[in-house]
């Protein structure tokens, strides 16, 4: 008997979401088949890689990645330009300095940084709060207004603050990153809540909550696979938003990216190990369906882009 290629019949399609404007704008999504299966679907846009910068110096980042951005990272504008030169598809500005436990910077201060960074680069900008839901409401409102017209992606909207963050995105014509806690139903629920308040689901990018290689990667991986199946095979409109994975944040705090050679000789050299940790984590997220990755190490981002080329 001759092999008949067993094809899936997909009824759904991932929304296409554009970030930024002009020649360097980035569009993600648009797939109508499970990741990279081009024999049964189309993939109009390759997954995009954003490099992360912050409004404060990355003194908390492990040495390997700190070194990789040193020289540029003292100031967010030079850091953003550096990322653009390094080939980042987007720059992701994390306003960590606004966190009450960090420098507790004001929303206005953060907004100025966001506007300065947006003005300094041609690639699209992603604006992320510090992760403190309450403070993020104010910070993201101010940052969204300060970057109006730049078509940024702002976030993360979470259960506790989605109304204000989504309102800020809507009022200033930005896209929205909505994060739920590693659960298929919670991801869908948040998209439903956003839709109910009038936010267009076609402007949402969902963050299913990333995890690092060796530290729960399989949970994110399977949640993403299930989200993609619901979107494409069950044609669930609330699951058809593109997916972003915030990788650097999760990777650059685990022991494998920090422990020096002497401490863990059986793990091999730190520089190679740490880089591999971010790249292999990224490869996992890509395989499961990520449309956009936020990474920290320019070398890891470049290697990930090589893999994306190899996959398309």
């Amino acid at each position: 008997m001759a092999l008949v290629i067993p094809k899936e019949s997909y009824s759904g399609k991932i929304y296409e979401v554009q970030i930024g404007s002009g020649g360097k704008s980035v569009t993600i999504g648009g797939a109508n088949a499970l990741p990279f299966l081009s024999f049964e679907g189309v993939f109009p846009h390759k997954p995009a890689v954003a490099l992360e910068i912050m409004d404060i110096a990355p003194t908390d980042w492990p040495e390997t990645v700190q070194k990789a951005v040193s020289g540029a990272s003292a100031n967010p504008v030079s850091w953003a330009k550096f990322c653009q030169e390094q080939g980042a598809d987007l720059v992701a500005l994390r306003l960590l300095g606004t966190h009450p436990d960090q420098q507790n910077k004001s929303a206005d201060e953060a907004a100025r940084v966001a506007a300065d960074v947006a003005a300094a680069i041609d690639v699209p900008l992603v604006i992320l709060g510090s992760g403190q839901a309450e403070k993020d409401s104010q910070v993201l409102q101010a940052a969204a207004a300060a970057t109006r017209g730049k078509n940024c992606a702002i976030g993360k909207a979470v259960e506790e603050n989605y109304k204000t963050v989504a309102a800020a995105a809507m009022a200033n014509d930005h896209k929205l990153i909505a994060m739920s806690q590693l659960d298929v139903n919670l991801a869908k629920q948040l998209n439903i809540l956003l839709s109910q308040m009038g936010f267009a689901k076609e402007k949402i990018i969902m963050d299913p909550m990333s995890s690092a290689l060796g530290y729960g990667l399989e949970y994110t991986y399977s949640v993403m696979e299930r989200i993609r199946q619901a979107a494409l095979l069950q044609n669930d409109p609330m699951m058809q938003t593109p997916i972003v994975c915030d990788i650097g944040l999760n990777v650059w705090k685990v022991k494998e990216t920090i422990a020096p050679d002497a401490e863990m000789p059986e793990w091999g050299g730190l520089a190679d190990r740490a880089l591999a940790w971010e790249v292999i984590s990224a490869s996992g997220m890509l395989t499961a369906g990520a449309d956009m990755l936020i990474m920290r190490h320019p070398g890891a981002a470049a290697k990930t882009k090589e893999l994306i080329a190899d996959l398309m």
């Binding site: 991986y221 494998e256 050299g269 190990r273």
Partner: peptide
């Protein structure tokens, strides 16, 4: 099979 490479791949395999 550098050690760093095997650590990453074996961890991935264990996860999956």
């Amino acid at each position: 099979i550098e050690k760093w490479k095997m650590l990453a791949l074996l961890s991935l395999r264990q996860n999956i």
